[in-house]
Design a protein around this nucleic acid. Structure first.
Length: 483
RNA sequence: GGCGGCAUAGCCAAGUGGUAAGGCAGAGGUCUGCAAAACCUUUAUCCCCCAGUUCGAAUCUGGGUGCCGCCUCCA
């Protein structure tokens, strides 16, 4: 079986063949740290986290690099507002980023380069571009001469003639005066009074936005990487410009595969800071939404399609997660210590349901079709929950326990690939011993026989409040279980 | 104006030539003192519209309509 993925560059699905067999170099254009991350960021981070996990599960040695943009006008604005510094603002939101991602169970990247730590690489790149005739200085700025790069527009499918200058009506008149062509973009910006600046061959200044990624990729992963990922809104101009910068210097492709995730929308409109219709990750999680439900919400849609955020969608995902979670806790509920629940299981183990594994892989191999792969997890979880109920309610099942354990292990392994982790509810206030529960049940039986249903129901409610569910069976016996 | 994408049940969402996965929600029933839990059954004659290709199309072609993203910072 081969993994096929949709390459924005060629606009078609292609078999995945990394440059070096068995090894994947992957870069994800991360966030600009001037505010808390919103759901749009969460989607991107979760999607690329799972892509990375999946590639690793498929046996690839993955080197995953994600940047932080920590030089930016918006960070500076915020610093001014708060009478703080760019460094302090950036540092604060980088910490917040890690907190949010930890809650969402997004694994840490292998490296998190920052623009402020990449000044040498950036300046080297700008110099080379200048030497090769792709860049020109202008009043302390340095611009990229877009018309020098014959392939400009190949990623986004644009021709310079088709681009509309200032299509949305925002053009910086001052910059325009320095540019030879309106589509040229800044590689280096001259320092403005009171702003952070670095020494350079072009005087005091700071890097433009696009150049940092070109420099970081080159420094960390090499001239050609396998996967370059990011939000679809970065295709143009950001990724287009990265290609122009990098390939003009190296003469080789910057990335073999360009992958882009779809946007999160609210009422059908893109979630963004400028529209003000965003909800931050912590805002959502702090109103007691389970982080794993957010993960499910994201993975239930194909990663390239837009997903609309609604209360209904989230609550649907929360309920769906409960189903998966119960399945994942089958081992725990059948008496296995919770430590056995994660990562303790060898996924290549012959003890797995290989048919399910194969169906999962076939689904996801098709351009990371996680929604389709999720079907396998739901089937396993539902089956396990069903069998668990049979065992709890009747004490027996027709399915062999060996088979159930096999399905459970398979579910845990596949869930791990998608980054789902379940832990039992800590809210089990139940400090009751089995004997105490049995005693309560006897009290209730006595009340029932006396047709004192008010008393009987009170006992039942009290037990339920402590997480004990009673099951009255037709034969008059009352079973119970903790939940 | 240019470039790209999407339209499948109440909602979300797979499915790219062979007769509609899955999730959420809903309905009916069994059981029960009533519940709960559980169990059983059930929920698109049809995939935006029109025309065409084909033995056969949600799936291919052409033409519409609607929605979204990008062309400005953006995941």
């Amino acid at each position: 079986m081969t993994l096929t993925l949709y390459n924005t560059l060629t606009r078609q699905k292609e078999p995945f063949e990394p440059q070096e067999p068995g090894k994947v170099r992957m870069y994800y254009c991360g966030v600009t740290v001037y505010d808390y991350c919103h759901l749009g960021h969460a989607r991107a981070c979760i999607v690329w986290d799972v892509v990375r996990r999946y590639l690793q599960w498929r046996g690839y040695d993955v080197c995953y690099v994600q940047n932080f943009t920590d030089i930016d006008d918006k960070i500076l604005n915020r610093a001014r507002q708060e009478h703080s510094s760019m460094e302090a603002v950036a540092e604060r939101f980088i910490q917040a980023y890690f907190e949010d991602m930890d809650r969402l169970n997004v694994r840490e990247a292998d490296a998190y380069p920052r623009a402020t730590h990449t000044l040498n690489g950036i300046q080297r790149l700008v110099s080379e571009l200048e030497q090769k005739g792709y860049a020109y200085p202008a009043a302390g700025d340095v611009y990229y001469a877009v018309r020098q790069f014959a392939d400009y527009g190949k990623l986004s499918g644009r021709k310079l003639e088709d681009l509309q200058v200032g299509a949305s009506g925002r053009v910086d008149a001052e910059d325009e005066g320095r540019k030879r062509d309106p589509f040229d973009f800044a590689l280096w910006k001259a320092a403005k009074p009171g702003e952070p600046a670095w020494e350079s061959p072009w005087g005091l200044g700071r890097p433009g936005w696009h150049i940092e990624c070109s420099a970081m990729v080159r420094d960390r992963l090499g001239d050609t990487i396998d996967i370059h990922a990011g939000g679809a809104d970065l295709i143009f101009p950001h990724h287009e410009n990265e290609i122009a910068q990098s390939e003009a210097v190296t003469g080789v492709p910057l990335a073999r595969y360009w992958l882009h995730n779809g946007m999160v929308t609210v009422d059908g409109e893109k979630m963004s800071k400028s529209l003000g219709n965003f909800i931050t990750i912590r805002e959502l999680l702090d109103r007691s939404t389970d982080p794993m439900a957010v993960r499910l919400f994201v993975l239930q849609a194909q990663y390239r399609k837009p997903i609309d955020f609604t209360d209904e969608a989230i609550s649907s995902a929360e309920k769906g997660w409960m189903t998966l979670k119960e399945g994942l806790l089958f081992g725990h509920r059948r008496g296995l210590p919770i430590s056995e629940n994660h990562s303790q299981i060898n996924c290549t183990d012959e003890m797995l349901d290989l048919d399910a594994v194969e169906r999962f892989q076939t689904a996801v191999d098709d351009d990371f079709n996680f929604p389709s792969g999720l079907v396998v997890l739901f089937e396993l979880a539902k089956e396990l929950n069903h069998e668990y109920n049979l065992l709890t309610h009747t004490g027996k099942t027709d399915t062999s326990l060996a088979m159930l354990w096999r399905q459970w292990r398979t579910l845990v392994c596949l869930a791990e690939v998608l980054g789902f982790a379940a832990s039992p509810d800590s809210l089990s206030l139940d400090n009751l011993s089995d004997a105490e529960i049995e005693s309560q049940i006897q009290q209730r039986q006595i009340a029932r026989k006396a047709r004192n249903f008010a008393q009987a129901d009170l006992i039942r409610d009290q037990l339920q409040a402590q997480g004990i569910t009673l099951i009255d069976s037709p034969d008059g016996v009352t079973r119970w279980h903790r939940q």
